[in-house]
Design a protein around this nucleic acid. Structure first.
Length: 111
DNA sequence: GAGGTGACTGCGA
DNA sequence: CTCGCAGCCACCT
């Protein structure tokens, strides 16, 4: 039903992100049809840790592959640790080969 | 009901 | 290269 809020829609897409891959807020926003509202995606992540099951928010970074939301994980190093745990290299708070690891829901889910 | 906030993005200087 | 401004919309007080 449509009872699902914008948050729930974001959570579902984020959970669909394959291990070892990352995506951007704008990509999720575009997939949801709210391309111009990339802020809403990040805002949704603010409550992501309250969602169940928990969403892999560490796989969601900004357009530059920068871990902008790392401070929201409780510890600024936690997000990087989680990414490295999945095989994603992070350097200077930024995802290495971001463009290569980038996972575009508008394309991957389009199949 | 109205105002303020924000884990973003794109463009201009 | 870096810095700043405007647009966007749901949630909170």
């Amino acid at each position: 039903m449509e009872a699902a809020t914008f948050y729930d829609q974001v959570y579902q897409v984020v959970r669909l992100i394959p291990k070892g891959r990352v995506t951007s807020y704008g990509a999720i926003a575009a997939y949801l049809g709210t391309k111009g509202s990339s802020r809403m995606v990040g805002y949704a992540m603010n409550a992501a840790h309250t969602a169940s099951p928990p969403v892999p928010a560490q796989r969601v970074v900004n357009r530059n592959g920068l871990l902008t939301g790392k401070f929201h994980f409780g510890s600024p190093d936690l997000m990087q640790q989680l990414l490295e745990n999945e095989g994603i290299k992070v350097e200077n708070d930024k995802v290495v080969a971001f463009k290569t690891l980038f996972w575009n829901p508008s394309i991957e889910l389009e199949l």
